Simulated assay, not measured.
Amino acid sequence: MKIGILSDSHLKSDYTKDVIDFLKKINCEYLIHAGDLCMEKNLQLLEESELKYIAVFGNNDRNLLNLSFKYNIKQEPYYFKIKDTTFKLMHLPYYLTPDSQIVIFGHTHIFECDYKNKTLFLNPGEVCAREKPLIECVQLEVKEKEYIISRYFKNINEINFTKEEYKYER
């Protein structure tokens, strides 16, 4: 199963659309957004992707709270399951406990992946290119015996994404 993961879109709906289109192009079946969407347009883009998606509210999403009935956006930490894999999704990295197989977070705007005690911790970095001039996202491939994390990033002036790959045995 292939999952597209993004976070910290902020007010960059054009970058968000670019990332979602790219994640669809590389055959992601699901989208997970780790918060700070900041505007309804970014939720609309998730909805319009026609992929199954889930998002959590970030610390800059107070103006979106009244839209939880309209979009698949939840309070953090949010626990869910895709097939046989358990996830915990949050924006703020306050709940980094190994109580799921995969823990996804945002907020820091810094890509991070670590596999400790049979839990994968993952931060996809930032879509908005605020902290550095890079648009970032991740494709997580969940296989029976391994996780393959593909970090994709590109400079805001570039067309194509660069790929870095990380693998962990489950």
Rank of each mutant, 00 (worst) to 15 (best):
K145V: 15
L92I: 08
K74R: 08
F153N: 11
R130M: 04
K167P: 10
T97K: 14
F105G: 02
F153S: 08
P77Y: 02
G125D: 03
E141C: 02
S150C: 09
C128Q: 08
K116A: 09
E141T: 08
Y152P: 09
P133N: 14
Y79T: 14
S100C: 15
L122K: 06
V138E: 15
L89A: 11
C113P: 01
P77G: 14
Q139M: 09
V103R: 07
G106Y: 08
G125C: 05
F105M: 06
R130Y: 07
Y166F: 14
Y78H: 14
P98T: 00
Y166E: 03
S150D: 13
T85I: 14
L140A: 09
E158S: 05
T162V: 01
E146Q: 12
E112D: 13
F87W: 10
I149F: 11
E126W: 10
T97V: 01
F121M: 12
I104W: 08
K88D: 03
H109Y: 08
Y94N: 10
E76L: 07
I73S: 05
E136P: 00
Y115D: 02
R130W: 06
A129L: 08
N157Y: 00
R151W: 13
P93N: 09
L89G: 08
T97L: 03
C128R: 07
T108Q: 05
I104R: 12
I73Q: 09
Y94T: 01
D114H: 12
K132D: 01
N157I: 02
N123A: 05
Y115P: 08
Y94C: 00
K88V: 03
E158M: 06
E144S: 14
M90T: 10
F153D: 01
C113Y: 11
F105N: 04
K83E: 15
Y94P: 00
N155L: 06
E76R: 07
K163P: 12
C113M: 04
L120N: 08
P77V: 11
E158Y: 06
E112Y: 12
Y115G: 02
N155Q: 05
H107M: 01
I156Y: 00
Q101K: 13
H107P: 01
V138I: 14
A129Q: 05
P93M: 04
I156A: 03
E141M: 08
T119G: 00
L122R: 06
L140D: 06
V103W: 01
V142Q: 01
P98D: 04
T108I: 07
N157H: 05
L92V: 04
I82N: 11
N123S: 05
F111N: 13
I110A: 01
K163Q: 14
E136H: 03
L89M: 10
I73F: 11
E164H: 10
L134T: 09
Y166Q: 05
S100V: 15
C137K: 02
P133D: 14
F161M: 06
K132S: 03
V103N: 10
C128T: 12
N160C: 10
I149W: 12
F80M: 12
K118M: 14
E76C: 07
K163G: 12
I104Y: 10
K154F: 05
M90L: 07
Y152Q: 04
I156N: 02
V103C: 12
I156H: 00
H107D: 09
D114F: 11
I102E: 03
H91P: 00
P133Q: 13
I102V: 12
I110Q: 10
S150N: 14
L120S: 07
